[in-house]
């Protein structure tokens, strides 16, 4: 059993609905997971599987059409699902920080990098202008920007994509948060920069001891950097396990299919296996398993019986009828 004070984030049966024409999409449908202090927890899934919605639900930054329909989010023991807007503002950027997908548009074009870095420090840490500036320069040095004192006066358009993402990381880490949510932090960057950015995140995690929630569609990336991984499909977590366990012993057919569609250097023979079809968008009631139409191991009952999540081995949970009898 995990010690309560060791848990940074606990998400319990989270439901998020997104209003669309003629109904509500089950964006996040009963997601539960726990992130311990200093842990890197990864969420994998296709576009539209609800991984970003999970992140935005935790931050309470859902789009106007979205709402949290049920469940609990506990941050260091504090229930923040019902917290006041003011409390959330105090937490965001200070205790919980977030990095976004597209660094090209995540910075305010009209202010200098130094100004933007100082902003959260002045708001949350109560530093004055000179102190904040000094800290900003220090942060830029830490994320590996050359000549930080001079670059402080640059505007975002004078920075490359990789440098902007470094600035975003510096801003997110300004107040040494307990939890860093990285939503596809390298999708918009090229592969060499991706490597640098992720090692930077890991390096900084060691420095400030934050837990990290890493969200991406790139399983290889998760395999390299995460302690544990959850695989999401159609708003639900279908499998959670430690990285080693998930890679060596994937149980859910979807996880297997994802791994099978991933190119690997040491397997030279054979073609990659694509997953045919598209993930569904679930609006009404769930009927059976959401993956059933695309599943290679489909049984008759998959169409009608909704699988529940079960713990198969220690810390290895799966949502599939194939394993229902074993539990």
């Amino acid at each position: 059993m995990v010690e309560a004070n060791d848990v940074t984030l606990e998400v319990e049966d989270l439901h998020t609905r997104i209003g669309v024409k003629g109904g509500e999409v089950r964006g996040v449908d009963g997601v539960s997971f726990v992130i311990r202090a200093r842990e890197v927890f990864g969420i994998a899934g296709e576009s539209g599987s609800g991984k970003s919605m999970t992140a935005f639900s935790i931050m309470r930054l859902l789009p106007l059409q979205g709402r949290i329909a049920g469940g609990r989010v506990r941050f260091k023991g504090e229930d923040i699902t019902g917290a006041s807007d003011q409390r959330m503002q105090d937490l965001r950027g200070d205790r919980i920080a977030m990095i976004f997908q597209d660094p090209m548009t995540s910075l305010n074009p009209v202010f200098t990098i130094g100004d933007q870095l100082s902003e959260p420090l002045r708001q949350h840490a109560g530093l004055n202008e000179a102190q904040a500036r000094e800290k900003a320069i220090e942060l830029l040095t830490r994320v590996g920007i050359n000549d930080p004192a001079k670059r402080c006066n640059s505007y975002p358009h004078e920075f490359s994509g990789g440098m902007r993402q470094r600035v975003m990381i510096a801003m997110a880490l300004a107040c040494s948060p307990d939890l860093l949510i990285a939503d596809e932090p390298t999708t918009a960057l090229d592969v060499t920069i991706e490597k640098q950015i992720l090692s930077l995140i890991e390096e900084l995690r060691a420095g400030i001891g934050a837990a990290i929630l890493l969200i991406t569609h790139n399983l290889a990336l998760l395999a390299e950097h995460c302690d544990r991984i959850a695989v999401m499909y159609a708003g639900q977590i279908v499998e959670t396990a430690s990285t080693d366990e998930l890679l060596s012993n994937p149980l859910h057919p979807y996880t297997k299919a994802l791994l099978g569609s991933m190119p690997r250097a040491h397997i030279s023979k054979g073609r990659l296996k694509p997953i045919t079809g598209l993930p569904p968008v679930i609006t009404g009631e769930r009927k059976g398993c959401a993956f059933a139409p695309r599943c290679p191991a489909k049984m008759a009952s998959c169409e009608t019986v909704e699988p529940a999540i079960r713990e198969i081995n220690a810390g290895h949970e799966v949502r599939c009828l194939l394993f229902e009898d074993r539990a």
Binding site: G93, A97, M98, F100, T105, S106, N108, H124, A172
Partner: peptide, 10 residues
Amino acid sequence: EFVLAAKALG
């Protein structure tokens, strides 16, 4: 996105 980022900074 930078407005969303600003919200995420609290």
